[in-house]
Design a protein around this nucleic acid. Sequence first.
DNA 1: CCCACAATACCCACTAGAGGGTATTTTTCG
DNA 2: CGAAAAATACCCTCTAGTGGGTATTGTGGG
Lengths: 213, 213
Amino acid sequence: MSITRILVADPLEVLAVGLSSWLADAPELNVIGHAATGQAVLERLAKEPVDLILMEVSLPEQDGIDTMREVHRRHPKVKVLAYSSLTDIEYVNSMLIEGASGYLVKDASQAEVITAIRTVMCDKPYLSPAARESTLRGYDYTEKRMDGEYIGLTEREREIIRLVALERTNDEIAKALFISVDTVKTHRKHLMTKLNVRSLAGLVRYARDRNWI
Amino acid sequence: MSITRILVADPLEVLAVGLSSWLADAPELNVIGHAATGQAVLERLAKEPVDLILMEVSLPEQDGIDTMREVHRRHPKVKVLAYSSLTDIEYVNSMLIEGASGYLVKDASQAEVITAIRTVMCDKPYLSPAARESTLRGYDYTEKRMDGEYIGLTEREREIIRLVALERTNDEIAKALFISVDTVKTHRKHLMTKLNVRSLAGLVRYARDRNWI
DNA sequence: CCCACAATACCCACTAGAGGGTATTTTTCG
DNA sequence: CGAAAAATACCCTCTAGTGGGTATTGTGGG
């Protein structure tokens, strides 16, 4: 049996240490490093072989979803197992659509972590119960995006949602970006439709979860 | 030198494992257990001696701030070192006012963790740089709560802020709680004043950070 | 070359929220 | 018991946000 080289992509180094300690019980699973940001993940991949990445969704700077997309594009053979406390369908679907082999919820036990990694390394998908339940339940407020009908946010929309979540009014955002208030409103409408939320509150939660604020 | 018995209060067991691994390098510091909820912390304290608790602010069910208050009331001799990724002044001040001996930011290195624990065990306060900076900068939108003028939220206010953050409208909240819309508005006003925020967005972030939603 | 999409901007109408009060009753706590 | 705090509810005004359109321009991909 060959050794699986694992990179832990998580803001906290101490978490990688914990995983490393847990995986010491699985001789073929080897934590070879820790990357705190999406950028660090890509740099690491460029200069060292990696078999599997345990990837947090809420990475700082470039988050896990964006990093997932880049990793999949540049290194299609590297497996990625999403690893996060978030279980909302938005994040589970996003990661899977961007190429993740599975979604492991962060409060998993040592046994589940090992099982999940082994499952994924056998080319089988792995979803923690909470993540699976989330995908079965579907979206909350609309029927627009069943299953995989995934719509990413544009750069401009990300700028807007960040400012919205930081308590800026439409007027302030318009002035800051040198655009009309109406344009800001249009972006907000698109955001709310895409993210299946009813109000500002949903936008704020999304931005917070993805660690954009 | 006597042994320091440390309880790690954090939703993730794997984090406690990581800390335990790090503290293996400090012979007198000993992780004796892990508690995932505030309730579990109190149960543990009731039946086993503990010298220091590393406490996450965002514990599920009963969060770190509330647990801090209870621990301090029931076991005033147990030291608590707050341990969280959150650096906003609201959380730092809340924990310190409720009796924490320090505030350690979660991306701290192994060396800083050990230093922080040793500092606190010598009866000296410890604040990570980011936490100290936050307290020096002060509050964002008003001057109402300088320094320690800390105002806790009432039970009713917590119910309201949760529902608000879950995208419920004032009208829906009123119906759910069998009270008038005006009352809901009054609670919202109080919340916004207490938490120094300008809009719904600030309330949502607060509720999310404290793991109430 | 065309199509799709992103970003821009405007229309209209309506609702919800923010911000300022005051006031009553009940509960809690010293 | 008496004071303070909490929960309740109303007044008024104004702004901000939601929800439905339509439309133009530029850009990138097939």
